[in-house]
Amino acid sequence: MYLYLKYISILFKSQAQYRLSFWLLTVGQALTPLTVLAGLYFMFAQFGQVKGWTFYEAALCYAVIGLSYALSETFARGFDMFSSLVGSGDFDRLLVRPRSTILQVLGSKFEFARLGRMLQSLIVLFWSLSKLPIELTFPKLFTLMLMIVCGVLIFSGLFVATASLSFWTIQGIEVANVFTDGGREMAKYPLSIYEKWVTNFFTYVIPLGCVNYLPLLYVLGRTDGHQLRYMLSPLAGVVFILPCLLLWHIGVRHYRSTGS
């Protein structure tokens, strides 16, 4: 953990050297997702409700996923850029160091400007909660925290799985963005508005629905059945990241140097 924090400190100092550029990037990252929120607002302004969901309920869903993705993109960005290490042969240097390759790749890249997205998502989160008739009990606050943390695990798992493919393909596969960027955009809306096969895929294969839709039903008081099942559904994120890490270790064992 000390080494990981050292990585964070070094990269933050390097990115903050040009302060104006850093803060402009941070502000830009905070403002860019507002176009999606604006689209969400105008859609609900036109139709009122979408399959029983109001604007503020959808905004809460948007904020949870936006916050999870921003945190994952900030601290797991090294995996998103990993294919360049394999292609250049620089991954060899990581293998000879007496530390975990996962830790070293995590520490190779941090996008602190992405924290602007996190701030924007936090503002939308508190704003939507203030507009909804929700009694924020401790179990509901705990569920919200679990949604965000396990959302980070799912997106980080997707980054790890995508990076692992580089051991066999050398270059990153663009189609993987369907599940990272595409999954993020899809999960900003309640899953019940999609076709059943989409709902099933993003519940049982890539369990984004387990960190936004199902626990959100509990937070909003719309559960049908035992509440504990909805509260603990975000733990699917822990289950999801395990095979992603296993795929990484398999890839490392099968890695062949470029010889450069």
Rank of each mutant, 00 (worst) to 15 (best):
M1S: 11
Y2Q: 11
L5I: 08
L11Q: 13
Q17G: 12
W23E: 01
W23S: 07
T26M: 04
V27R: 01
Q29G: 06
T32D: 15
G39Y: 09
G39D: 02
G39P: 02
L40W: 13
L40R: 10
A45E: 15
F47G: 15
G48Q: 03
G48F: 11
Q49W: 09
W53L: 14
A58L: 04
A59T: 10
Y62D: 04
Y62W: 12
V64R: 03
E73R: 12
R77Q: 12
G78P: 00
F82S: 02
S84A: 12
L85I: 01
G87R: 15
S88C: 03
D90I: 10
D90R: 07
R99S: 13
I102E: 08
K109I: 14
F112S: 00
F112A: 01
L115Y: 05
M118A: 14
Q120K: 04
L122F: 07
I123F: 09
V124F: 05
L125H: 00
L125N: 02
S130W: 04
L132H: 01
P133F: 01
T137M: 04
T143F: 04
M145G: 14
L146N: 05
M147D: 01
C150Y: 06
C150M: 12
G151Q: 01
S156M: 13
L158I: 10
L158Y: 06
F159Q: 14
F159M: 15
A161L: 06
T162C: 09
S166I: 02
F167D: 03
A176W: 13
D181K: 15
R184W: 12
M186N: 05
Y189N: 14
S192D: 10
Y194V: 00
W197Q: 11
T199E: 14
N200I: 14
V205L: 05
I206H: 06
L208V: 02
L208R: 05
G209S: 03
G209T: 04
N212L: 07
Y213L: 05
L216A: 05
L217E: 10
Y218D: 08
V219G: 04
R222F: 03
Q227S: 14
Y230E: 01
S233E: 03
P234K: 07
L235N: 02
G237R: 03
L246K: 11
W248T: 10
W248Q: 05
H249S: 09
H249Y: 12
Y255A: 03
S257M: 05
T258I: 09
S260W: 14
